[in-house]
Simulated scan of single mutants.
Amino acid sequence: MARRYFTLALLTEGRSDQWFLCPVIDRQVAALACEGAVGFDYSGVVTGECFTVAPRDSVVREVRELLRYFDIVLIHHDHNERGKAEAVREALAAYAARIVPLVPVRETEAWMLTDLEALREATPMQDTAWQVPHDVERVADPKAILNDALGRRRDAERDFDRLGQTVCLESLAKVSAYRPWVCDLRAAMEQQRFL
Rank of each mutant, 00 (worst) to 15 (best):
H77V: 14
Q28W: 08
F70I: 06
L146N: 03
L185C: 03
V38W: 00
R158Y: 08
R98E: 04
L74I: 09
R179E: 10
P133G: 07
P142G: 04
I99M: 01
D41R: 07
L66H: 00
A2M: 10
A144T: 13
V73W: 00
G36D: 10
P101Q: 00
P124E: 00
M1I: 12
C34N: 13
A9S: 13
R152E: 11
C183I: 06
L66K: 05
R15K: 14
R193E: 15
V100I: 09
L92T: 02
I145H: 11
L10V: 03
A2D: 12
Q131N: 09
R27D: 04
W181E: 05
F20Q: 10
L169I: 05
V100H: 02
T7Q: 09
P23K: 05
H76R: 06
D78H: 09
S43K: 13
A129N: 11
G48M: 04
V38A: 07
E81A: 15
M112Q: 14
W130Y: 09
E65M: 13
S171I: 03
T12E: 06
E62Q: 10
K174V: 01
V167M: 01
R98I: 04
D184W: 06
C34D: 14
H76V: 09
E62T: 03
E170C: 10
V45A: 08
V105Y: 14
R15Q: 14
V60L: 04
P124I: 01
H134F: 12
E109M: 10
N80Q: 13
A96W: 06
M125E: 15
P133K: 04
E65N: 15
A144M: 09
Q126D: 11
F194S: 06
T128N: 12
Y95F: 14
Q126F: 12
N80R: 14
K174A: 15
P55N: 07
P101M: 00
D115I: 03
L150D: 01
F160I: 07
G83R: 12
L185F: 00
R61C: 08
E62W: 00
D159H: 14
D159W: 08
D135N: 14
T52K: 03
V136A: 10
A37E: 14
Y178T: 07
P104G: 04
D184K: 15
R162F: 01
R4V: 07
R89F: 00
M189V: 03
T47I: 10
L146F: 10
W130K: 01
T52P: 05
C22Y: 02
A37T: 14
I72A: 01
M189S: 06
P124M: 00
A118I: 09
G39Q: 00
D161L: 15
I72K: 01
I72G: 01
K143N: 02
I25Q: 02
A91K: 06
A87N: 10
G151Y: 02
Y178Q: 09
R82E: 10
A187H: 01
L185H: 02
Y5V: 12
Y69E: 11
R27I: 09
S171M: 15
Y69A: 12
D155A: 13
Y69I: 08
D161S: 13
M112V: 08
F6T: 05
L116F: 11
E190Y: 01
K84C: 03
R15S: 13
E49N: 13
Q191S: 13
F194I: 07
S16A: 11
A173C: 07
Q126W: 14
A30I: 02
A93Y: 08
Q131E: 14
L163A: 09
L8N: 02
D78C: 05
R68N: 11
R27T: 08
P133H: 08
A129R: 15
R106L: 07
F20A: 09
